[in-house]
Write a protein that binds this DNA or RNA. Structure first.
Lengths: 339, 339
DNA sequence: TTGTACGCGTTATCAA
DNA sequence: TTGATAACGCGTACAA
């Protein structure tokens, strides 16, 4: 009875090919350090035995797994789904694989997920934003795990992101130019979320620069329903002519609520988004929003992280955001200013 | 100069705690097989040394990684993003982590991704649909890697999915009841995609049952633009009063094209979707579509796969789809049938 | 309940 | 270019 269930090992391959295990290993990991003739013999044996290197043994001996971890709030937001998708595709094929975990916007869960990924041997990490317990950065440094932050500018950390603050300030600036003065905002929950905080901050500073402040600000969880609720509450103040939203999902929810209330967009109220995900082009009217190059950002993050893992310097990159003027904005009625 | 860079090992912990390495291992993996007193000593040492088990060594010795792999066409489609998100959340926390790869709807790339995940020591796999090279299933069986198929009923394979065929047949049945007779369809690319094929097949069989066939069928890549193009082409036939779409993205693209052509929906043309993702509620009018319990499916798939990995039997589950009647359908003009 | 000692399969060092 | 051999760090029979 031969052991049919056990897999072939380097020893089996070496024996069949008539070489040493060291040569087999070289053939697989550094083919150019072996003569064509022996390489041929070895590869034939590999195929004959259907040999696959044991992952654990390889990781143990080489001290690297080829696994990169990513922790995002949720894949349900297209922003992260697209970014992670692009990130994964930009990883050197065959060399790295992506381990994904979600935090549900919870700091505690994010910490546990980071630990779990590192425990699984992640060679590097992709994280969202910079706002987290400093102990985590210390721990990562201690463990010598390289990481890249995305969707924000990472302050002192390596990052591939953009400036949420100025992006939103530009949007509010445009709304002000349209003559709006009574403006409200629906923001994401800012606690533990630097993206949401920066967007709110950017909006407020643009208002302040014009000597104004918001009629009302509502912090709500990202979701159509919560945005719709916030919108109705905000519009109770009949002076409001524009509602700035922290992202496109929030804006879509507000838009729907507006329709439900019999309000015309943009004639009665201007609604703006942020992110420029697919839904921005699907709503009616289409959303005026801030374009963020999510896919490009995923690619840059992958490039940067792979540099870091390889011991190369690696430079952070700040991507530009862009105002996208579509149909959900207009000059305030009677303002005499053209859109 | 002490070696500051090397991490603590079981030996270090054992030495500090004054026990053997075996006891340390037991404390971490089977705490109940150790007295509370020694456990306390060991855990104190673990914390003091900031000890984390080496992943490679653990995997090598235990022959399992706690890594589960998933290969989906793309995370850009909300259907997969949501499903994967739910799947990941349903994985036993701390015990399993999710390795995600995308195939871009390419069979060759999917095969390579599967191999890459198995090479990374995946204890189990989540795959989309059943339509793939049989050699892959053989290879998986040879390697003894458990897997679960989702988004389809998996034929002879373990699956957590739903019946695309009957789901679409029900939708077409409803459209026929509304009096429509000149119907066209925008389908996803059916080659290598059993979901798209089943939906097209289900639609055709419902038509056939009424003694009809489609005015036109267009197979296009999933995307707003391609759907918009297909819609205009299909509507060149002025008899068409309803367009069945293979999924919600396609339907959203068709809807946008309809607006662009000055067609009213649903007064001039009925448009239906499939999947019931977020955008179905964001379009105007909201999409009449087929609801698929993506999150529930992800959870069931996780449950099933974990059963399989644990050596338990594990039962496939077929989830029910449901017709969601919203605003994009209406009785054909002059049909005298109420919606 | 705890300790001893070996095996897991690969890579890397150093000679040849 | 190739080969012998020593790590790599943990789990686990088996014995105490």
């Amino acid at each position: 009875m031969t052991e049919k269930t056990s897999h072939a090992t380097v020893d089996d391959v070496a024996a069949l090919a008539g070489v040493s295990t060291a040569t087999v290993s070289r053939c697989l990991n550094a083919p150019d350090r072996v003569t064509a003739a022996t390489r041929e013999k070895v590869m034939t044996a590999v195929r004959a035995l259907n040999y696959t290197p044991n992952f654990g043994a390889k990781a143990l001996a080489s001290k690297r797994t080829g696994i990169i971890g990513a922790v995002v709030p949720t894949l349900e937001n297209a922003v992260f789904a697209h970014g992670v998708d692009a990130f994964e595709r930009a990883l050197a094929p065959g060399k790295f694989a992506l381990l994904v975990a979600s935090s549900g916007y919870e700091a505690g869960r994010e910490k546990r997920q980071i630990e779990a990924l590192v425990a699984r041997g992640a060679d590097g990490l992709l994280l969202v934003g910079f706002d987290r317990d400093p102990a985590i950065y210390d721990w990562l440094a201690l463990r010598k795990v390289p990481y890249v932050l995305a969707w924000s500018s990472g302050e002192s950390h390596p990052y591939a992101g953009f400036d949420n603050l100025s992006g939103m300030a530009a949007m509010v600036g445009m709304v002000l130019e349209l003559g709006h003065r009574n403006i409200a905002m629906i923001s994401g929950i800012t606690s533990g979320n630097d993206r949401a905080r920066d967007r709110l901050e950017g909006a407020r500073s643009a208002m302040a620069q014009a000597g104004l402040s918001f009629c009302g600000v509502r912090e709500v969880a990202y979701g159509l329903e919560s945005a719709a609720g916030a919108f109705s509450a905000l519009m109770a103040d009949r002076r409001v002519t524009a509602v700035i939203c922290g992202n496109d999902v929030l804006a879509a929810g507000a838009l729907r609520a507006a329709h439900g209330m019999g309000l015309r967009v943009p004639e009665d109220v201007t609604i703006t988004g942020f992110d420029d995900i697919d839904i921005a082009e699907i709503t009616w009217p289409q959303l005026t929003t801030v374009r963020v190059p999510h896919s490009r950002m995923g690619e840059e993050a992958a490039r940067l992280l792979q540099d870091l893992i390889a011991g190369r310097p690696g430079e952070s990159v700040l991507l530009a955001t862009e105002l996208v003027r579509r149909g959900s904005h207009a000059a305030v009625a009677g303002a005499g200013i053209l859109p």
